[in-house]
Amino acid sequence: MAVRTSSAPVALPAQRDRSGTHHSRAWRVYRRLTPWLFLAPALLFFAVFKFWPSIWGIWLGLFHVQPYLGDQWVGLANFSKALGDPDLRAAVGHTVLDAAVQVAGSMLVGFLLALLLEGAARHVRILRTAVFLPAVTAMVAVAELWQTLLYPGRYGAVNSLLGDVGLGPLPFLSSPHSSLWTVMLVQVWKHAPYDMVIFIAGLVGIDRQLYESASIDGANAWQRLWNVTLPSLRPITTIVLILGMIRGLRVFTEIYVLTPGGGPGGSTESIVTYVVKNAVISNDAGYASAISALLLLTTIILTSATLWWRRRREDA
């Protein structure tokens, strides 16, 4: 990138050789530094606002945090508390289930939407924009609408429709048995369009000739999808999966605004809402930091594992 644009006199190798080793070493140092100089503003920004706070957060996990009186060193106590905390274990269970279902659901719906809405025609573009709207709408506003639509009483919009066909009323967000599933449904609605856009980008990149030769070979639409489209989308699928997994593990806004306080009977408490509860309500920033550090570690391990697995499969 930046290296190539530097005004290096590449056409004059002889001249550089004559000017001696000293100059060429300075040149090499300069060349090696250039990309870093270009990266510096962004790196500095990340260092101050991401890397340093993350490291500081992990460090805080080793303390009983008392902002004014001074922090107390507690060693690994917060971490061992986290490992034996039944509420956290329940939150992990909800988060993993939520992540698995909503990532799979969003990918499936997103992929189907992508197949339907790929193309450059004007009406498709308008339709695509309409479908993409949930992904760009503020979650808090969206949650407010969904809460109203899904009101558990007879006169809730969805329930009154269900009532017309003799069903319900369903409790949706207000029962511990259905709250998490309802949240997942809203998440799929919200994230599927986002996945769709990435899939469309992938679909556009597939060589048309592959389809043509498959057709000539007598493949029907289903076979073309299975043998051409899907294998070609493998790298894109990896990206969507990893993004979804990260999003799933740190799920917060949807759950927090749809079911404040962890939902009925704590049925939608996720890892991050539990972290917030500990940091803000119990005033235990140390414990909250410890859980966050464990979450970060898990995310890194899972992401690396997925990448490694994909790479191995693609190499094979």
Binding site: G57, G61, V272, V275, V276, A279, A288, L296
Partner: peptide, 12 residues
Amino acid sequence: ARHRVMAAAAAA
């Protein structure tokens, strides 16, 4: 919510 980790935000 936009931050990866709540505590990280506080720590910032």
